[in-house]
Amino acid sequence: MTNEWADLITYFSTASILLPILISIFRWQQINPLQRLIAYLAGITLIGELVILIAAYQLGNNLPFIHLFTVIQFIVLSQIFKRGLVPFISSSIIQGLVLFIIGLALVDAIWLNGIYNFNSYARPLASLILISLGLAFLYKTLSELKIRSLEREPLFWITVGVLLYFSGNLIIFISTNYVKISNQALLTLWSVHAIFNIILNTTYAIALWVRPRD
């Protein structure tokens, strides 16, 4: 993949978060508290994307911000899942997972990989936990059979986004620090990541657009 295409995909990936933000501004009065939380996630993601992008060009190494973004993204997503999973999964379990990821991120940043390397322990583990929360939501939905029109349920779309993004990127997250590949190949991998990011942001937008049944 050429640098130009990689740059184009990266810019498009960053810009794709604008769609859910615009939708949330447009529908702010009509969306429910869960959707407002998704809107805050979109806002945090936009700030994170801009900081990471600017740091990549200005500072050369944006990885410290990825450590921070991993934790913030996990906290917000876990709180979104908590609204749909409690009491199926106890609230204290989810809060415990948040504390675990915060602790692991600190350990990863300070001792394991270091803050200037990719967080290949914290990010994959956070991914696995979020995938598990998504699967738990699907299981809960099947076992309770209360939600008929899933396509109108915001948390369903968040789950789809989480499953596709974090499953697709898991291998990339794990292999970044441990696989010897050329810079060009690395660029390709992170372009693939950017495509998954576009998918995730699109599902945020759908989650903010749908009108759930009461």
């Binding site: 441990y178 696989v179 010897k180 590949i181 050329s182 190949a185």
Partner: peptide
């Protein structure tokens, strides 16, 4: 991100 040392796997 620089080139990582480690397993030599085709892309």
């Amino acid at each position: 991100m620089g080139q990582a040392e480690g397993l030599d796997l085709p892309i």
